[in-house]
Structure formats: structure tokens, C-alpha cells
Design a protein around this nucleic acid. Structure first.
Lengths: 206, 206
DNA sequence: AGGATGTCTGGACATTTGTCCAGACTACTC
DNA sequence: GAGTAGTCTGGACAAATGTCCAGACATCCT
């Protein structure tokens, strides 16, 4: 009761975090099928039984890992959204290009495995409704960013085009991953497509 | 030598096809991890050892199943592309809307599991370069369709926007799958987004 | 220092998995 | 109808997997 096993808990949480990181990396690199208890433990550098100690089951471990990874992404999206919204931007081509660039940089940041794991969440969501909430949160956060960008750029109805812009970026990222193109090229493609799309939607909604 | 086991081979091929269908369905419904020898065989209604008889390994079975499913899609895409190209369309709003509609119908046809399996191919491609060719073929066929549509609608440089349109549609489909929206809604969203995008790219490239 | 308490792990277990093959079976030729 | 060649399958095997737990371990209070 009065015990504060500070060191214990600290190390425990560190191991738990290591397991979650390892799980995310394995899912990204070799798929969900390869994310076994032993593989995850080996990657995290802990004994196999550690996984059972910290998580009810392998499913809970994976769900938690996905959740954490997703939270990071959502947080980054919301941070950029807040920046866009707080800055009083003037609707001009420069603003649009700047936003397109910032978005491209954000979605292409982070290791490749993380990005793949993110799409793996979408696949899980398509089968298991438990994951749908995860995916929806992600989409909504991204959509809010797109809407903020549209609004800052002077669009009359930001909501209309936001979903399409999210789809456009996700689609380009999926193509990048599946085709194996360089990150450099993917980033510039996303930036260009976003710029075009923003200009277009601007014209349409004005 | 002179033997023509016609009936044998016929039934054999039917079973092989049943296995491939079953594999595709299971991948779509429950993911690659659930696509085991026994699960596939049970679904196809054949003894478990049949899988080993017809395929070198489980990987070859899955790769073949993905390949077949993908070929169907590519064929459908090319058929529509040929139709668009052969018809001498006049570049007007009606043409664009008609093309948007035809594309939306095409990509949303087929059972949900097939669509998910198609995205699973993209995920595999992101990890295994062997699958990259599959994904690329798919993307290229779709891109050709989009380019044909742009060209028919009077776009000056069809190639420029085609890739973005493919990304847009794939992204919308992914959102549809992950969010669990109705097919009706997804189809209308795809149609609307395509119409807007085509009009936009039209203006941009002219 | 010593006991108490929560933290961790080696090893084991039942299941499930991929793979194989000896032999049963079927269709065909003569 | 008997023989034969190709087709198929039940059953078995090793390996891998998820899960569990008795006990070792570390940390803390008194």
C-alpha cells in the first residue's frame, strides 16, 4: 500500500513500451501474421513470457500497439491543425503551397514501417469493427487538418473537399508503399497533388 | 501417354479453382493470418491435403490466389478503358459525369471481401517486392483508365492527373472499407469526387 | 537485516500449423 | 473385366504458436 516500487514500475513500463514498439515494427516490416509472442519478445530483447505478463493476449498486445502508434499520428495531425488555425493566413498561392508542403512533410515523416503499420490498422478496421473507431479517429483528425487548410486558404465550404483530400493523400501514400518508389519522389508527388487539389477546390467553392 | 484423363483433370482444376476462391475469400474476410491450409481447404470443401497436392506451399497458394483475383480486376479495368477509347466522346460535362459514374460502378462492383483482398495485395507489395509487380500492374491499368477518361474529356495532358485520380479513388475506397460506410454512400462519394476532380484537372490542363 | 510484496522468467503444456507420403481411388486402355 | 497410370486423401510428423504458473528475483518498509 505504502510501497512505491518506483524502479520496478519504471522498468516494467519501459519493457512494456519496448514490446509495443517491437510489435509495431514487426507488423510494419513483416505483417500481422509475423507478429507472434516470441518474435515480438525477441525484438524487444525481453524473455518471451514477458508478453503474457503485460498483456492479456496477443490480440490485446497488437491492438494496444496499433492504438499507441495511431495516437502519435493523431497528435501530430492535431498539432499541425492547431498551428494552421491559430496562424491568421491570407488566402494566396503561397499559403496554399506552404500548407501543401507542411502536410507532405508531416505524412511522410516517420519510418516506413510505421506508415505501413498505419495502413494495417485500416485493413484491420475493414474486418473488425473494434478497429473502425481507431481508423475513424485517424481519418477525422486528418480531415480536420485538410479542412483547416482549405479554410485558411479561403475556401467557402471547407468540409466538402476535405475528405477527398485525405483520400488523395492516403491513396498516394499507398501507391508509394506498394510501388516501392523513393520517399523523395513520394513526398514531391504528394506536395504537387495537394497544391493542385487545393487550387481546384478553391476555384470550385468560390 | 495416350491417356487423356479428361474427367480427372477437369475435376482437379475445379478443385484448384475452388481452393483459390476460398483463399481469396478468407484473406478478404479474416486476413492473411487466417488463411491456413486447413481453413482454406475446409472453406473449399476439400480435404486438407488437397492444398499441398496442388500447390508447392501455402505462400504459392496465396500468391496464386492474389494473382487470379488481381487479373480479374485488371481485365475489367482494361475492358472499360478500351470502351472509353473506342467511343469517340465529346468533351462535355455529360461525358465527364458518365465516365465518373462508370468508374464508380466498376470499382465498387464485386463482393466486399474481394475489394479488401485487393488492398491486401498492396500491403504485401509494400513488404515483398515480389508482389510489387502485381500492385504496379493494377495501378497502371487503373491509371490508363483514368488517362483515357481525361483524354476523352479533352484534357491536354492526360498523364499528369491520372495518377492522382487513381490515388483519390483508392483512398476513398480504403476509407469506405475502414469506416464501414454503406456501399451506396461510397459509390456516390466516389462518383462525386471523380466528377469534381475531372472538371478541375480539365481546367488546369487547358 | 529481514521479512513482505510486487515483478519477472524459465520451462512446460495443449493446440495449431505446414508438410509429407503410402496407399486408396478413379478413369481409361486393351 | 483386368491392368495401369494418373489423381486424390487420411493420417502422421516435426515445428511453431498462445498461454500458463511455480518459483526466482528485486525492491521496499520497518
Amino acid at each position: 500500500m505504502a510501497i512505491r516500487p518506483e524502479t520496478h514500475r519504471t522498468r516494467g513500463l519501459a519493457r512494456r513500451a519496448a514490446l509495443l514498439d517491437a510489435a509495431g515494427e514487426i507488423v510494419g516490416e513483416r505483417g500481422i501474421a509475423a507478429a507472434t509472442h516470441r518474435a515480438i519478445a525477441a525484438r524487444a530483447g525481453v524473455p518471451p513470457s514477458t508478453t503474457s505478463y503485460f498483456f492479456e493476449s496477443i490480440d490485446e498486445l497488437l491492438a494496444t500497439a496499433m492504438r499507441e502508434r495511431l495516437d502519435e499520428h493523431v497528435q501530430a495531425l492535431r498539432a499541425l491543425t492547431a498551428t494552421i488555425e491559430s496562424a491568421e493566413l491570407t488566402p494566396d498561392p503561397q499559403t496554399i503551397d506552404g500548407f501543401a508542403d507542411a502536410t507532405a512533410v508531416l505524412v511522410m515523416s516517420g519510418p516506413r514501417a510505421h506508415t505501413i503499420a498505419q495502413f494495417e490498422v485500416y485493413m484491420q478496421a475493414s474486418r473488425d469493427s473494434k478497429y473502425s473507431n481507431y481508423a475513424e479517429e485517424m481519418f477525422d483528425a486528418f480531415e480536420a487538418l485538410a479542412a483547416a487548410g482549405l479554410k485558411a486558404a479561403g475556401a467557402a465550404e471547407p468540409a466538402t473537399g476535405a475528405r477527398a483530400i485525405v483520400a488523395l493523400v492516403d491513396g498516394l501514400m499507398l501507391q508509394h508503399l506498394a510501388r516501392g518508389t523513393t520517399e523523395r519522389r513520394a513526398k514531391s508527388e504528394i506536395r504537387a497533388a495537394l497544391a493542385v487539389a487545393f487550387h481546384s477546390y478553391l476555384e470550385v467553392s468560390q
